[in-house]
């Protein structure tokens, strides 16, 4: 499986964020996007997810044996956690598992973890039946991370995944990311925090945009 970005350019509010940005990523590889505030990290992730238009260039995810659009093969974890505060963590995850599950299981892909297993993996099994509004910011973030496990999608697009996480949870996050890569997944993460990933490639936005 291979993600190819060819000479991307992005505009936001009439301002050109970057242009001529190319990179390639194959199964088991992670790309860490770095750059100052406002360099276009979130915009790049949203463009890959198909949530914002590209000003120029092309994006392609090939070799997955699935002809679904890129956005439907990607998990997008943005600044917002996409959780309903009136529902419990379990209800939220059950909904997203049904909504985001792939139409066909991916060849060689991991089976999606059950909702309870996913919550256990992020260390939240004990608050599964609490409404989201009773959880702390870090716990909400971990429920959002459990969503990545509850439905199997090969490409993870993570925007500041470690926000609000304590040290132990950050360790767990890195563990989940490494497992995803080992299972042949792809990760594009925008972050300021160090990510403990084996041979992650780095993309610096702002100064000179080249991979």
């Amino acid at each position: 499986m291979r993600l190819r970005a060819d000479r991307l350019a992005l505009d936001r509010g009439g301002r050109r964020l970057f242009s001529e940005l190319s990179f390639e990523l194959s199964s088991g590889q992670a790309l860490v996007v770095r750059g100052e505030n406002g360099a276009g990290k979130t915009s790049l992730l949203r463009a890959i997810a198909g949530l914002a238009p590209l000003a120029a260039g092309a994006l392609e995810l090939s070799g997955g044996g699935d002809d679904a659009p890129l956005g439907e093969q990607a998990h997008y974890l943005g600044h917002a956690d996409a959780l309903k505060s009136a529902l419990t963590a379990r209800e939220n995850l059950q909904f997203w598992a049904a909504m985001l599950a792939a139409a066909r299981p991916r060849a060689g892909g991991r089976r999606a973890a059950g909702v309870s297993a996913a919550l256990d993996r992020v260390g939240l099994g004990h608050v599964a039946d609490f409404p989201i509004h009773a959880l702390s910011a870090g716990q909400k973030r971990r429920v959002a991370l459990a969503r990545l496990l509850a439905a199997d999608r090969p490409l993870w697009l993570l925007d500041e995944p470690s926000t609000a996480l304590d040290l132990a949870a950050q360790g767990r996050l890195h563990e989940l990311l490494r497992e995803h890569l080992a299972a042949g997944g792809l990760i594009v993460a925008a972050t300021h925090a160090p990510l403990d990933l084996p041979d992650a490639r780095e993309l610096r936005l702002g100064a000179a945009a080249a991979a």
């Binding site: 949203r46 997810a49 198909g50 949530l51 659009p69 956005g71 439907e72 990607a74 997008y76 943005g78 600044h79 917002a80 956690d81 996409a82 959780l83 309903k84 505060s85 997203w96 049904a98 909504m99 985001l100 599950a101 792939a102 139409a103």
Partner: peptide, 17 residues
């Protein structure tokens, strides 16, 4: 509006439905 505010709409757009 509520789905837009909490980011759910971004995911619903690329859901199975």
């Amino acid at each position: 509006q509520s789905d837009e505010d909490d980011g759910s709409l971004d995911l619903l757009i690329h859901g199975r439905l």
